[in-house]
Amino acid sequence: MHSTIVRGQNVFGFFTTVCFAVAALIAASDLLAPRTPRATVAANAVQVVKGRPHYYSTKKEEYAIIRFTMNADFSSLFTWNTKQVFVYVSASWPNSTSSELTNEAVIWDTIITNPSADHLQNIGPAAMKKGRIDLKNVKPKYQITAPSGKLQETDDVVLKVHYNVQPWVGILTWTPQIEFGKWKKLKGGMSKAFKIPAIKKKDTPKKA
């Protein structure tokens, strides 16, 4: 009953219980912090080029390069339990058979680490600190294609801004679809529908 092993076990058991209780309280404190993010996004020039998925492939696919402008404020997402916020911009478009946005592809993303987590890698530019993003007519990080390899002259494409909050401990959260307590929906964050143009015909053949 009072052997060293039993005492050690008790101390360790109590230690882990306290650790988990504190972690649970910290995780629950997320619900108390209001979240009021906002974002605006708009597509600029859209270009379609032909390319191969990788160097040795013989398949030619169409790649859309969607330049875009984005202004967003995610500063309210940063609390003491925020490890990072993953912000991503996706392009969605419907199938030929339905009007639902059945296809979605990420064209740009960034990781905003909490200022208190700056010892971590992948720190964005200083301007992106504290969750403010201001991008003007930037190139997308990812050129997108479709499984069919066809993407030119696609109608009703929209850009959407999303975020994913990664806590130090607790529940991961994404852009909410409904208001939830103090967590508001993302204000704005969707572009007007636009059309992906046809592949540009080469007017002047380049010299070899």
Binding site: N95, T102, N103, E104, A105, D109, I144
Partner: peptide
């Protein structure tokens, strides 16, 4: 992380 999704349901790529 999922970065692209084409189609809906079980056959979505």
């Amino acid at each position: 992380r999922l970065v692209r999704k084409f189609g809906v349901g079980d056959d979505a790529k």
